[in-house]
Structure formats: structure tokens, C-alpha cells
Amino acid sequence: MKFIKRFFRFVFKTLFWLFVFSIVIVVVFKWVPVPITPLMVIKNIEQTDESKKGWEHDWVAIEDISKNLQLAVICSEDQNFLKHHGFDVKAIEKAYENNKKGKRLKGASSISQQTAKNIFLWPQRSYLRKGLETYFTFLIELIWSKERIMEVYLNSIEMGPGIYGAEAASQYWFKKSAASLTKYQASAIAAILPSPMRYKANPATSYIEGRKTWIVKQMNYFGPLNYQTRDDKDE
């Protein structure tokens, strides 16, 4: 009996301190740049070609990332980003119905969910990871602003072979800073995000050119990007 009590006490303490640590790390990353992500490490370990080991990742402030790129990823990945609280319920329902009909599996992860997964978790799918992703999505939506979520997202996602974040991607694909991306250059980067190892932002295939055109149209429909409107409503 003593052993069982000790075991459960140990489990309880472990879960408690993991809970505390999760909150602390989310609070820290509200202001501190994220230096490395699990995906960077995992991809680097899996890389068999020693000459291609490592990654490019240059953190820049949101002010140094073109509004064109910020808007392009919203229009491409999550058009309700400024409206929802981490989960796009309509998109999830649509994906569920689509998958239930036996069509190709389609996800509905919001930018907030992708950020939570990229920063705190591993890429492989499982019920445990999905549950933790939901938890961390709730935390960052509660503690961070939408603008901070976007800043972390654009500084951490994979945007090419060994290329992570907007600045590294801008330099790699267009030999320029993230601050000076045009609409079409930003839409090209956004267009490859579903599969950055498969597609190229430059030179673009006919498929990516079509995606670029669609994204730019969506950007024009969306109008000016204003984070303050959403964040002020939440206060």
C-alpha cells in the first residue's frame, strides 16, 4: 500500500510541476524569442546527408516582417484567425464532414494550433499530441496577443529545406529581407506552407502560380490587417 501511495504521489507531483512549467514557458515566450523548436531538432537528426545538417533560422520582430506575408498566411492558412479563440469550429466541422465522406483527409488546424504544435510539441500525429496541442493552444490564446501568435508563427514554421522563419525564407527564396516582400513574393511563400519540402516558392510551378493568384485575391478581399481590433475586444 505504501508503494502505491508513493507512486500516485509521485505521479501527482510530476503532473503538477509539468502543469506549472507549461504555464511558465508560455509566459516566458510571450516576450522572449523562441530560439529552437522540436521540429528543427527532429528534422536535423533525421537528416542522413551530413553536408545538409543544420538549419537557417533568424528571429526578427513582427515589425520587420512585411504585412504582406502576415496577411498572405492568414488568407492561405486561417482566414478566421482574428475572429476565433484558437479553434475555427466551422473549418473543423467542414473537415470532419469531408473526411467522413471518404475523401482525402483534410485538416483544419488554425494558425494558433500550428503555433502551439511547432513550439511546444512533436510533429507525429497521436491522440496524446492532439490533446496537448489543444491545451497549449488554449494557453497561448489566453496569455499571448494575436500579434504575438503571428510573430512566433512566422518566426518558427518550416518554409523550405532546413529553412525556418520568415527572414530565413525571404533570404533563401528571394534574396531580400522579410520586411520588403511584395504581395506576390509573400503569397509564394504562403503557397508552399502545406508542404515546404515538396514545393518551391521561387521559381514557382504552375500549381504554385495558381495558388499565388488565389491568395493575392483573398488578400485584396480581406483588406487592411489590424490586430488591435481583435485584441481590444478581448480586454
Rank of each mutant, 00 (worst) to 15 (best):
I65L: 01
I65G: 09
S187Y: 03
H84Q: 03
Y199L: 10
S180E: 15
R9M: 12
F21E: 08
I4S: 13
S170D: 02
I62S: 01
D58W: 05
K175D: 12
S110Y: 02
K212E: 06
Q218H: 09
Y172M: 09
Y135C: 04
A179K: 14
M197S: 08
A191T: 07
W214L: 11
R211E: 01
S110R: 02
I36C: 10
F174R: 00
A186G: 02
S170Q: 01
N155K: 10
L105P: 04
L128K: 06
V152R: 11
R104T: 14
C75P: 11
G210C: 05
A190C: 06
P196T: 09
E93S: 14
R198I: 10
V26N: 06
I157W: 07
N155W: 05
I42D: 05
S112A: 15
E209C: 05
L82G: 01
W59D: 04
K2I: 15
K13D: 11
T48E: 12
I143S: 09
A108L: 06
W122C: 03
G160V: 06
T115Y: 00
A191W: 04
V20K: 00
L82S: 08
E77L: 02
Y153K: 11
G160A: 08
M197E: 04
S126E: 12
P33S: 01
N44C: 11
Q114F: 00
K52P: 08
Y153W: 01
K176R: 14
Y127W: 15
I92F: 01
Q124A: 10
S109F: 03
P196L: 04
I215R: 01
A169G: 06
R148M: 06
P203K: 09
L154E: 03
S156P: 10
E209A: 01
E147T: 04
A116K: 00
K2C: 08
F21N: 00
Q171P: 08
V41H: 09
I149C: 03
F81L: 00
F120M: 10
K5H: 12
Q171W: 01
M150L: 04
K212Y: 03
Q70P: 09
M150V: 02
S66R: 02
E77Y: 08
P203E: 13
R129A: 03
V20E: 04
Q218T: 01
T182G: 12
I157R: 08
E97K: 14
D64A: 04
A108D: 08
S76K: 02
V216Y: 13
D234A: 15
N68E: 15
K52V: 06
K200I: 02
C75W: 03
F16H: 10
T182E: 11
L39V: 15
G162A: 08
W173S: 06
G86R: 07
T229D: 11
D88M: 07
E151V: 12
F12P: 01
P161Y: 04
Q79L: 07
I163S: 08
L154D: 05
F87I: 15
Y172Q: 00
Y199T: 00
G102L: 12
F120W: 06
T229M: 14
L18H: 00
N118H: 00
K94N: 13
E93G: 12
R125G: 09
